[in-house]
Amino acid sequence: MSTSPTTIMDETTPTAQSVEVVMNPASPALDKSSRFNAPTIIDIDNVDFYYGQSKALHGINFPIKEKLVTAFIGPSGCGKSTLLRCLNRMNDLVDGTRIGAGSIKISGVDIYDPSVDVIELRKRVGMVFQKSNPFPKSIYENIVYGLRLQGINQKARLDETVERSLRGAALWDEVRDRLHTSALGLSGGQQQRLCIARAIAVEPEIILMDEPCSALDPIATVKVEELIHQLKQNYTIVIVTHNMQQAGRCSDITAFFYMGRLIEIDTTEKIFTNPSQRQTEDYISGRFG
C-alpha cells in the first residue's frame, strides 16, 4: 500500500455507493458509546452547495451532536470550510453562492428559510477564524463589542461579561491587569483565545472554528486545544482543521471530506484506529492530501 501511494486517488474516488454506506446514521461505533447519544443540534440534510456554477458540496448528510467536538478534516479544497461557513451563513457574504438542494436545520429550524434573521443566527452560532482577528481596540472593548452591538451598555453587565468570557477562554489571569490596553499587544495564541472569548461573550450555543490553530506555535496550539476541551462542557463545537493530529487530540467525532463529499464520519477513536474507508486511512496516514 505504501509503495504505490499514487494509485490511491483513482481507485478510491468516492462513488455514491461508498458514500451511502458511511452516511448511514446508524454507524455502529457512533451508537456504541453512550457519550455519543447526545441530542442532535445541527442536522445537515443532503446539502448541495454551489459557488456560481461549480458544485462545492455534494449531498452532505449527517447530524452534529450537542456538546461534543466535531472535527472536519480533509485535504485543501475538500469543502470542509465551505460547509462550516454554511452553518452560520457566512457564505452569504460571497457573491454567487447558494444551497442547491437540501437543508441545514439548527435546533429544528431551517437556517436558510427566508424568515430567519441571519443576525440572530450568528449570535447563536459564533465563529473563530483561522487568522486571529482581534479588533484594534482594547481587550475590554473587543470582548464587549458583540454586547454593545445589541445595545447593552450597563457597565456592571459588561464588566461581568468580560470576566466571565476571559475566564471561559482561560485568559483572565494573563490579561486581568491590562484589560484596557490594546488587544494587538497580545501574543498570537492570546489573540486567538481573545477571539474565542469574544465569541463566547455573546453566549452562543455553537462555536465554529475555522482552522483556529493554523497560525499558532505548538505551545499556543496546546492551550487552545485544552480550551476547546473545556468549552465542550457548555458549547457544541465544530472545528475545521487540516492538522489531523489536532482532530485526533481534541474532537469526539471526526468527519472526513474529500472532493466535496463526506467520505466517513465516526467517533474520532474509530476514525483514527480503524477507519472503514480506504481513503480515510490514506489521508490520516499522510499518504495523500
Binding site: Q245, G248, R249, T268, E269, F272, T273
Partner: peptide, 9 residues
C-alpha cells in the same frame, strides 16, 4: 493505549 497513540501521536 492504541486510541491514545492514534489520536495524539
Amino acid at each position: 493505549v492504541i486510541n491514545h497513540m492514534a489520536t495524539h501521536a
